[in-house]
Design a protein around this nucleic acid. Structure first.
Lengths: 226, 226
DNA sequence: GTCTATAGGCTGATAGAC
DNA sequence: GTCTATCAGCCTATAGAC
């Protein structure tokens, strides 16, 4: 029912807003803020482009609206996992699932997210949400150590490793899908669930407490640290 | 000495090309292709903007030139690691270092790389290089299994986990630096070397052959696989 | 709330002098 | 090879009719 508005007849203004948000999310994700003419958003939403200024106060306003609701939803979903998890391992599983479901429910958000953290001036209004998300991983790391299930690692590094891998995978998924449909993907299309399972297992094993390396002393390159 | 060209006097045309490539790399990385006016590139390079058309045939030509040389350099560096490594563990170490050095020598490339794989139509001329990079991780996974140092995992998933985490970290580094200098970073500035070391250790431990989980049976959520 | 028409700014490219 | 001057095209925003 989205994108089916063709007649100049008046409908529900909320529907107009939603259609614009929907269309803009996909297009901004695909081509970036500067890569999308406002007319393209309007066309995809099936509404007049002047309505963007009317409802969101301009192109930038539309963009920020999308961005903020996306980041807020993400932070909320991730924060909800911890309290319901039995232990750190369970929480890791829950966080990965939450991330995957977010990408599923809001296709385009991961890409938007990545584009935003790539940009110079990250939108000030999303900074608090970013902070909340970072805090989630930090608490996970601390919890794992407290429960003696994880070895002690820098929580921030864990955050970047985890979020980075996931964000990259899901942000590039739409592009892969498009490339694949044109037969221009130089490898097989990886499955999202399989990837998440892989990350979970790798992280769980990788964080397991214990000695660094039980195998015969690993040879080091000449320039390596003592 | 780059960006010091001010006088209309004639200099080395190669210097002009290099200055433009240098300037464009940073600016395109920072703001994306559509976010950078050609005049800004010229200004930063200290060159007249008409020279972009003259030397590269236009804005897009300049962009593709950067992109291709970056991807080619990356693929080459990664491919050079395997033959020199003693074993799969050593190769992993070498790959991570190569990635880090690439990010160091070509600041802006990781960001450019990420922006490109995010976009809808990945530039056809870089596809072969992407394929080469994917092949490197695939061979690493196979080598590790053959040498009985890694458990058997889907090489493509390993590739995404590894490259994704690294690309995310290094691509967002310039933005973090900028945010930090304005006091708008909601967390501490992570160190590149520390991150690479973390990824190496996590991956090495995570790929170690052996049973999934030696700890007391992990409780599973109701919906989980058998 | 929605549409049409238009204004005004900026962008990328090039012709032509040096 | 490099520069100045210029132009056509597209883009966002808005005034005003409905």
């Amino acid at each position: 029912m989205l994108g089916t508005r063709r007649k100049p007849e008046r409908r529900d203004p909320q529907a107009t807003r939603r259609a614009l948000l929907e269309a803009a999310t996909r297009l901004f994700a695909q081509s970036g803020f500067d890569g999308v003419p406002i007319g393209a958003v309007a066309a995809r939403a099936g509404v007049n482009k002047a309505l963007i200024s009317y409802h969101f106060g301009g192109k930038r306003g539309l963009y920020v609206a999308i961005l903020e609701s996306g980041f807020a939803a993400m932070a909320e979903r991730l924060q909800a996992v911890g309290p319901e998890a039995r232990d750190a391992r369970d929480e890791l599983h829950g966080l990965l699932e939450a991330f995957r479901r977010m990408a599923h429910d809001h296709p385009g958000f991961p890409t938007l997210f990545l584009r935003e953290v790539l940009a110079s001036g990250i939108e000030p209004r999303v900074v608090p949400h970013v902070a909340r998300i970072v805090a989630v991983t930090r608490r996970l790391a601390e919890r794992g150590v407290r429960e003696r299930r994880f070895r002690r690692v820098d929580p921030l590094l864990l955050h970047f490793g985890l979020v980075g891998g996931l964000a990259f995978f899901f942000a590039t998924e739409p592009a892969r899908r498009r490339a694949a449909s044109q037969g221009r993907l130089p490898f097989a299309q990886p499955d999202a669930k399989a990837f998440v399972r892989f990350v979970e297992e790798l992280t769980l094993r990788g964080l397991r407490p214990g000695p660094p390396d039980p195998s015969p002393t690993r040879p080091r390159r000449k320039g390596a640290r003592a």
